[in-house]
């Protein structure tokens, strides 16, 4: 008798697992216990300034404001690049802002505290990732990598020019939260310099010329020199090629061969690493050059100019190179 009963044990689970019907469509009304914050933002570069438009409120309020906000953006007029104008929807009240803020626009009843702020910053604030991550922190969100931010950004061609419009939902700022938010810190985008550096005092950053990624003007009295950092691909040539190019083009010296080069080349230790370092003084100019190899390319740090200026700033140049730190 006993074994027969055992079969039940086998059969029951078969039935339980075997059959499954098409699940029906469900309609239900459920309570909402949590309301999040929603964030509208727009970044609009114009001339020397970057304009930021920002509006935060509860999800429900903001759902109603989506279209008015878009309309508002479309109405912005930059006839005077420093004093933009716009058409306010009904019930929006404009007020002159304090400090950095250009204008504050109150929307709806006061107690809702729905304020659209308009702020202008200089070109140093152009990194979109950084700005959006700053905004994310304001509504209690962790910073994202550039790639992950993509879905939140909308590139819009406004009458006033191309803008980036942001729409995000977050739990809201956490009052007692201390320190940076958890998660990955924002990383620099591909346009940013791949390294950090400290520029010595008295060096003036100027526009990049030709291949360089970073350029400084250095003055010592009326004697001038120029510091450039340039990146060349794998085909940047051998050290000898480059040194000879510098000798020829900048210093006005004849070319040299390998053995000569070996004698002239010094080492410049930077952190754990060490790099080839040359100092060429010729009739035309004096040149300091450091060759910094990277996995896919080579960086050339170069100072070229009047002998006296270069001599005075040689220490500065070395300090500058030593301050360079490449990121990931």
């Amino acid at each position: 008798m006993v074994p027969r009963r055992r079969w039940l044990c086998v059969l029951v689970p078969l039935c339980l697992a075997g059959c499954r019907e098409d699940e029906p469509i469900v309609k239900q009304t459920v309570p909402r216990v949590s309301v999040m914050q929603r964030f509208f933002g727009a970044i609009l570069p114009k001339g020397e300034k970057i304009w930021f438009f920002k509006l935060v409120g509860t999800e429900d309020d903001m759902a109603e404001l989506q279209e008015p906000f878009d309309e508002f953006l479309k109405s912005i007029d930059f006839t005077d690049p420093l004093k933009p104008k716009w058409k306010l929807p009904k019930g929006w009240i404009e007020e002159v802002g304090k400090e950095m803020r250009y204008k504050t626009i109150h929307i709806g009843p006061k107690e809702k505290k729905l304020d659209l702020s308009v702020t202008a910053l200089g070109l140093e604030a152009e990194d979109v990732t950084e700005n959006v991550n700053r905004w994310r922190a304001q509504i209690g969100l962790v910073a994202f990598h550039k790639r992950d931010l993509e879905p939140f950004l909308r590139k819009v061609d406004l009458p006033a020019g191309p803008a980036i419009v942001v729409d995000m939902i977050g739990p809201g700022a956490v009052a007692q939260g201390k320190g940076p938010p958890m998660g990955a810190p924002p990383r620099p985008g591909p346009d940013a310099l791949p390294f950090k550096y400290e520029a010595p005092k008295g060096w003036e950053k100027i526009a990049n010329i030709t291949l360089s990624v970073l350029t400084f003007q250095v003055k010592e009295g009326d004697k001038k020199a120029r510091v450039t950092v340039s990146e060349l691909g794998k085909k940047s040539g051998s050290l000898l090629d480059n040194v000879n190019r510098w000798r020829r083009d900048y210093a006005g010296l004849p070319e040299i061969n390998e053995t000569q080069l070996a004698k002239d080349v010094q080492e410049l230790a930077v952190g754990l690493e060490s790099f080839k370092y040359v100092d060429i003084d010729g009739p035309k100019q004096r040149i300091l050059g450091v060759v910094w190899p990277r996995p896919d390319s080579t960086y050339f740090f170069k100072m070229a100019g009047h002998t006296d200026a270069v001599e005075k700033h040689k220490k500065n140049f070395e300090t500058f190179v030593k301050s360079v730190q490449f990121g990931g």
Binding site: L272, E273, F326, G328
Partner: peptide, 12 residues
């Protein structure tokens, strides 16, 4: 140490 830069970058 002379060859370090590319190696560190590749490691990253």
């Amino acid at each position: 140490r002379q060859q370090l830069g590319p190696v560190i970058a590749l490691a990253k």
